[in-house]
Write a protein that binds this DNA or RNA. Sequence first.
RNA 1: GGCGCGUUCGUCUAGCGGCCCAGGACAUCGCCCUCUCAAGGCGGAGAUCGCGGGUUCGAAUCCCGCACGCGCUACCA
Length: 488
Amino acid sequence: MTVRTRYAPSPTGVPHIGNIRTALFDYLLARRHGGQFVLRIEDTDRTRLDPTALPKIIESLEWLGIAPDEGPGIGGPYGPYIQSERVEYYRGAADRLLAQGDAYECWCSSQRLDELRAELARKKLPPKYDRRCRDDAGRAASRNEAEAEGGGCVVRFKTPLSGEITLHDAIFGDTTFDLATLDDFVMLKSDGFPTYHLAYIVDDEMMKISHVLRGSDWISSAPRHLLIYRALGYEPPVIAHLPQILGSDGSKLSKRHGATSIFEYRDQGYLPDAMFNFLGLMGWSLDDKTEILSREQFIEHFTLERVVKNPAVFNIDKLTWMNGVYIRDMPLDRLVALVAERLDSDLPQSVPRPVDRTTVARIVPLIRERIKLLTEIKEYCDFFFVDDLSYSRDDLLGKAFRDRPADARSALDAAVAAVTGLASFAHDALEARLRVSATELSVKAGDLFSLVRVAVTGRKVTPPLFESMEILGEERCHSRLRDAASKL
RNA sequence: GGCGCGUUCGUCUAGCGGCCCAGGACAUCGCCCUCUCAAGGCGGAGAUCGCGGGUUCGAAUCCCGCACGCGCUACCA
């Protein structure tokens, strides 16, 4: 059997981190078995449609590096891959169910349905449709009312009144549902579009999908789906519900927990490789110790058997740590390109673009183990590019020289002298000279270095000082040290 | 209200009857390294395995109750 999985989002907004995790597992399962991963757009809810969503969905998958094999704009043998272009198939399936007596037209108005639900709620009864249209007499009555008011009809599934049905889930195992607790759900809406329940089943069958992966919040709806597969004579695919991804307070991950959009993470400077690795570990693990896995390792080892059932809280601290790991392990030239790109976009307007790549290549080794996020780049090295440093007198003096600015001033003068006339303006020579100066001035080397650091970089936290000075060059170091001295 | 699912350190997880008075990772704390900050090394603290009953020579692991949490309960997915 060819393994074919699909990621089937609704185009209602920006891709959510939880959906992307599902897409990742779909991708992994397909790759693991040499199958295909398809993208299908489930746009049957015309009221929630966001026309800008499709390109975003594709962009998010490409960014993560899990581009689909088939889908809208990509093509494939089972298109179209957008449900609104497939309504004839759903209509056909509904007609068949109607003809077989597994479904019926329901002409009840939404007003009647609302009243019914209110009534049931008042009596503390489950809010189930009362099946008025299930028999001919009731349906005829409803129809007359509807036609008088110009209302349309929906198609409902004729759920058996008793019996049970068992879901065999690849992750959650078997769950048996009592059919008496189900109601006659809507498959085809009055606007002619299908509901999720009918549409996905028809599509999966036609697109030869072998495995359905979706969030565990769908488990409750699964018995309906099982009923449809049976009525339509389809062999159900392997069904696997995935544990939910939760926010820090244990409820469904949402905006108030922070970023839920995959793009927010991208923009904050998270790398696709780190996100891939992190999301791959949300509900799945290789063993009791492996945290960092390559894409190839994920593909080689991924199995549904090792997916856990319990929901996972999204732990951004761990993602951030992992991002740092990927930054440190990345090939140097790739990091140089990323850093340069970031500086081009983040540095003030006054700095000429593009920034000098040769300089960036010298800076990157100094900052690579200091940054966990790409957004931190600017903080660490803007002083290489920006000329007017803005720091306060207090910053410059620091704790060591707080009460003796005159000493700070002479220290800076000494520093200028010390770094003048060097055979080469190299970090080891600079360090050696300044250490001697510190001794001569009777100040602690660290105190002198801190003073020089702020003078030369404008910041208290920087990459290694002497390497930074070497890159800055003699001229800029001299003028910055003199500027600092003149401030005292 | 009904139905369903889940429950191992703060968080992600390992564990599928004895190797576990529970292992790893993030976060946290301390020490080392050190020009700041990181990174790195070493170490600490942190889970009576939700609770209560069973089964068994032996249970985090099997069974039954309960509690709590979450989900679904739309002509949304």
